[in-house]
Design a protein around this nucleic acid. Sequence first.
DNA 1: CCCGGAACCTGAAGGC
DNA 2: TGCCTTCAGGTTCCGG
Length: 272
Amino acid sequence: MPELPEVETIKNELAPHILGGTITGITLLWDGIVKKPSVEEFRSRLTGQKITSLSRHGKYLVLSLSNDDLLVVHLKMSGSLLLGRDSTQQPEYTRAVFHLDGGTKIFFRDPRKFGGVWLVRDWKTVTKNLGPEPLEADFTPQVLTQQLRNRKAPIKALLCDQSVIAGIGNMYADEALFAARINPLRSGASLTPEEIGRLHHAIQQTLRAAIGSKGASIVNYYRPGGETGTAHFDFKVAHGRGRNCPNCGRPIQRIPVRNRGTYFCPGCQPAP
DNA sequence: CCCGGAACCTGAAGGC
DNA sequence: TGCCTTCAGGTTCCGG
């Protein structure tokens, strides 16, 4: 499931292969992957454009093009962008292929058809209300305090809310809360300044470590070269069904929070 | 504005 | 062996 560390890794590993390349054509195997504009306009505006830069905003990947259009990509839960050459066999569940001059291909593989691409002038029209980037210098404990102020929802749900913080999803929310020793059901407003300080540190630490490990390959995450990441080997609680807490040895618990599987240690993260 | 739940979508895995 | 249920979860939409 691509979250911030996975999308960051994809951006970094895609860049050297596609930066400066020109899109010569698009093969669509499932039209529904194009969210905006129409399929016809998407194809005509994209063809012939040079890729001038890559950036990431939250879980969105943005390719800047020479005509000032932006190709915005969201992989949602099961999407991957795989590099290939002319001779490469098309992976199963490929929904779109971007052909570049020189023979490079980018396969958008997405078994569950949740992902999408947009061709827009301003990426903010796609990402709507994106909160602060957790790894930017301006993401301070004060900013986190402000984002959680007066919020009654469980902190787990708030961490996964892209308008509160950009880029965190189910896995890293669980990991950050464990590292900060905060129960996922605590309300945002109930956190003390000390707990917010711990959480702020835990979020940055968890995301940075995961980027260092090239992302977590629990299910359906592949890097552009087809390799997996290794961040999940460092997970303490996330997807820890049947395992014990590495700190205190108690069984890791799984509870639903906003219909999402939430893993935590009842000893290290005491109930509210 | 805030909150929680449903819907979207399909393959993998486990139970009986 | 095969059918059924559960799980995986990012985002948007809707009702209260």
